[in-house]
Design a protein around this nucleic acid. Structure first.
Lengths: 116, 116
DNA sequence: TCAATATATGAATAAGTATTCATATGATAA
DNA sequence: TTATCATATGAATACTTATTCATATATTGA
């Protein structure tokens, strides 16, 4: 396996990595969160909602695609705790669940050296 | 489409969303980044590398799975600019490309109210 | 050079996920 | 209540992505 030249240094790191490895359930939750914001179509919805609350019809206008697809995507992000919904008469208005989402987005953009 | 009750407020937001929507290419880059860190197997590798540089053999020990699968996952994360590789004799040592990655991870955990 | 070890990779299959289509639900106004 | 508009959803298909298996490459020591 690892007759690694840095046995001394790496062995400690490896042991520490095993000991500090989060459990399957926590890993799954983090995974679900990133999956929910990793599809281009959903990212566009997030970028739109960054400007403020929007009802589904306006989201469809802003990001393109069909009403059905957008609705499915909103459901996934709502289940992941990324957006929240509020019924408003015939419409349903969506908004970002909290500020962490935008912060994660902006940090990612910083990493990519892009000026979104 | 949207005879939305909040026409006045939402119309401005919707226009702003359209105007500030990043281009396809930028969306794709952000998407690729989040995809790269969204698989449980890859997340585990990131959690391991958070402790410091590790060669492939040690990563396999820390996260489980086959050598081949881990190698494929490392390739994906390297292509996404998340980890970097350094040959060290027979081994290849991997480490996190920069601190933004850990920051994104930790922010995500904050969002999920988990104490990783 | 040969054998041994560590890592990488192409191709196939398996698994997972998005999109579409048809239709259902919920709300309003007539 | 009925017609209409906005949104949601189940099921099927299409698409994308991960994992496996076999094997290739690279490095070191004998």
């Amino acid at each position: 396996m690892s007759g690694c030249g840095h046995e001394q240094e790496h062995a400690l790191t490896a042991r520490s990595a095993r000991e500090n490895m989060p459990g399957e359930e926590e890993v799954a939750r983090v995974s679900a969160l990133f999956k929910a914001i990793s599809e281009p179509a959903r990212l566009k919805i997030l970028f739109a909602l960054r400007q403020g609350e929007l009802c589904v019809g306006h989201i469809v206008e802003a990001v393109g695609g069909t009403q059905s697809a957008v609705s499915h995507q909103l459901r996934i992000m709502k289940a992941a705790g990324i957006v929240k919904a509020r019924r408003d008469g015939q419409n349903v208005a969506y908004s970002l669940a909290d500020s962490h989402v935008v912060a994660v987005l902006e940090l990612a953009c910083t990493h990519l050296h892009c000026k979104i």
